[in-house]
Amino acid sequence: MAENGVGASVRRKEDYRFLTGKGSYTDDLNVVGQTHAYFVRSPHAHATINSIDTAAAAAADGVVAVLTGDDLAADGIGPLICGVNVTSDDGEPHRAPVHSALAQGKVNYVGDHVAVVIAETLAEAKDAAEKVEVDYGILPAVTDTATAADDDQQQIHEVAPNNQCYNWPFGDKAAVDAAFESAHKVSSLDLVNNRMVTNPMEPRAAAGEYNSGTEEITLHLTTQNPHVHRLVMSAFNQLAPEHKLRVVGPDVGGGFGVKIFRVLRRVGCRLGLP
């Protein structure tokens, strides 16, 4: 075995920078002319957006821009995608509601993204965010897993009757049922798998920079897979062509799946490839 080779508990090469405060996480990056973004989020779990008035916020101290879902749509930025198809028992693909990065006409959970305020300082962005006037039409909320698909529940998405995304059976039901019929003993259990918030210690962050000379966007992200981020932002969201978009995952403070992005859908089809 080579010294420090396979099987050796080599002390980590990355530790010195982390132990001396020299790690470089996304929020540690600062560039000249940097502005700060703060999101206006829905305080309601389920509501229509009747109107958004950004005038007062846009006029507030230090504000560079206040942007909404309409601006996003006008620029042709596509919705967020889900990458994996599951075929339901009716033979149809799973139901996939449109997920705009900034809400368009409706919010569907507390924290949903309504608008973004960009200002010279974070404090100014936060102050201005409070001046964005949103007229909501509050709808009943669905929160319980077990009863979400019941007939009397409020519908969340038109494309998903009974709030069902899919019903996916797998296995030979008849054979299994027959085995149960003839079993010596059947044990059963009802259980809940509790909802968790993953909580890597570094909160998510994004820092974008545009070079108008080269027309290139550089995006530093708390990401577990920068290339796939770039591919999807380019192919599905039309943010910029892949060769004009650089995605960097600098030091990332824990992932555990929350900062992951992957796509299994037919990217090739979307790109018009065979």
Partner: peptide, 12 residues
């Protein structure tokens, strides 16, 4: 959302 919006907004 935030990642896409920041990427779009820095150009805008």
């Amino acid at each position: 959302s935030e990642e896409l919006v920041v990427g779009w907004a820095c150009r805008k």
